[in-house]
Structures are given as structure tokens and as C-alpha cells.
């Protein structure tokens, strides 16, 4: 069959072709482009978030067993009942049954009495003093509430310092200041240099722990001068004395 024998293609009316084209154009975007919406998924009865919120407290609060901070819980008030006198001082725990204070706080004593931040009495089993620094160690019969850690190094000038103790034998007090320098011991009771701070202390603060910003012990308060400067036995000296088993001798009784 030649091309001349092939029948002519059927012709449709222009109106019908236009109609069909319109219908096909109407169907094309729906079927060809996939815009026919699916049926909605069943609505759940409840929804939960994909990300579980993490607690983000706005304040750390005071996360101690009784609302007192570590610095307060470790501090001890010392009453030195002498043969003809009575004096008070401060001290702080370094472990469950040992506390550190100054030599002059426990000297000339007939009887030592300890009390904690919450007024509990703690018995004393032994007390001994160091000869190379104004330091003393007191052993207790009962457990002490808390003990800090000693800093690894002495602070530098400008570092913040917090002092916790019983100034004038009064209520437990926290004062703060900064390390202002180093000097030789003005009282000639300690070897090496001592630290100077501007943290306010008073008689009765002797033996208080001086803490850094992390709550570690950086020194022990032992003196003040008329200009308001306070003096600390640095923690390096404390560590040296504590490491020497022969550095301490028992406190003689005044009686």
C-alpha cells in the first residue's frame, strides 16, 4: 500500500477538539503534577514534643542538706577556758574529726570547747600546736559537719578571698576581700611569707579559713593590724606543716 492509498486521517469537529483539549488541560495538572491531596491521617488523641526540655534553673540555690553553705558548715567556734581567762577563736575542719586553728587560740588552755554553725557542741580529744607557724590541730570526738579542700597553690595578688569565722566571738560571719600582697610575718611567729588581705576580720576571727572563689582553703587568718589589713598563713605553709608529723606538739594545760 503506497502513501497515496493510505486513507486520510479522521477529522473531528473543532469545537469537540477544543472541548477535549480543555478537559485534558484540566486533568493534566492534577494527574501529571500530583497535586491531588491525599486523605488526612487520623488525628491523634494526644501529642508530645519531639524534644524533651532540659531543666534550666535560673538559680543554683543553696544545695546543702540544711540550707547552710559548705563554708559555714565547716567552720567551728572555739572557746578557750584558761585558768584565769576566757577567749574565743575560730577554726575549720580539714577532715571528719580534725580541725585547724591558730596556736594562740588554743594556748594557755585548761579546757577547750567547740561548737558548730548550728550550735551543736563537739568534744575535744586532743590539741597540738606547731612551732614553725601560728597553727594548731584539734582532734574531735564527734564528726564535723563538712570539710573543705585545700588549694594546691597560694593565691596571687588581686585574687578574691572569703573569710568565714566568729569575729569578736559573735555570730558566724562571712566577709570578703582581695589578696593585696605578701610580707614577712609582722608577729614573727611564722616562717616564710604571709599573705595580706583587705577582708575585714576582728579578734575572734583568728583561725578562720580564707577561701578562694571555688571554696578552697587558701590560708588561715591569724592577725590584723590597725589599718584594717588582715594576715593569713598561706596554704603552702599549712600543707608543709601538716605534712611534717613532728611539727606538732601537744598543748600543755595551764592548770
Amino acid at each position: 500500500m503506497t502513501s497515496s492509498d493510505r486513507p486520510a486521517p479522521p477529522r473531528t469537529a473543532p469545537v469537540v477538539r477544543l472541548l477535549m483539549a480543555t478537559l485534558l488541560m484540566a486533568l493534566m495538572p492534577l494527574a501529571g503534577c500530583g497535586v491531588v491531596p491525599d486523605l488526612p491521617a487520623p488525628v491523634p488523641t494526644d501529642v508530645t514534643g519531639t524534644a524533651r526540655p532540659e531543666p534550666a534553673p535560673t538559680a543554683t540555690g543553696n544545695l546543702s542538706p540544711d540550707g547552710f553553705g559548705q563554708a559555714q558548715r565547716m567552720t567551728v567556734r572555739i572557746r578557750n577556758i584558761g585558768c584565769s581567762s576566757l577567749s574565743t577563736g575560730s577554726g575549720f575542719a580539714i577532715d571528719a574529726r580534725t580541725l585547724i586553728t591558730n596556736r594562740h587560740v588554743v594556748a594557755d588552755s585548761a579546757h577547750l570547747q567547740l561548737s558548730t554553725y548550728d550550735g551543736r557542741d563537739v568534744g575535744v580529744t586532743a590539741a597540738s600546736t606547731a612551732s614553725l607557724a601560728d597553727l594548731a590541730v584539734v582532734r574531735t570526738a564527734e564528726r564535723l559537719p563538712a570539710a573543705p579542700t585545700l588549694a594546691d597553690h597560694d593565691p596571687t595578688v588581686g585574687d578574691p578571698v572569703t573569710v568565714v569565722g566568729y569575729p569578736l566571738g559573735g555570730r558566724l560571719t562571712v566577709t570578703s576581700g582581695r589578696v593585696t600582697g605578701r610580707t614577712t610575718d609582722p608577729l614573727h611567729q611564722s616562717l616564710g611569707e604571709v599573705l595580706i588581705t583587705d577582708a575585714p576580720v576582728e579578734p575572734g576571727s583568728s583561725g578562720s579559713a580564707a577561701l578562694d572563689a571555688q571554696g578552697r582553703v587558701i590560708g588561715v587568718v591569724y592577725a590584723k593590724d590597725s589599718t584594717g589589713e588582715s594576715f593569713l598563713v598561706p596554704v603552702s605553709t599549712v600543707r608543709t606543716v601538716l605534712a611534717d608529723a613532728n611539727a606538732f606538739t601537744p598543748v600543755p594545760s595551764c592548770s
Binding site: 540544711d66 561548737s115 554553725y117 558566724l172
Partner: peptide, 19 residues
Amino acid sequence: TSRITELANEKAQIGDEVA
């Protein structure tokens, strides 16, 4: 806590007075 501190101080002062 402030009251406890105050009471502890009062007790200490009484102890000082007794001593």
C-alpha cells in the same frame, strides 16, 4: 538559717557566760 545562726550565737554567748 538566720534564726539558727542567731540561736547558735545565743547559745555560745550563754556558754561563754556560764564559763
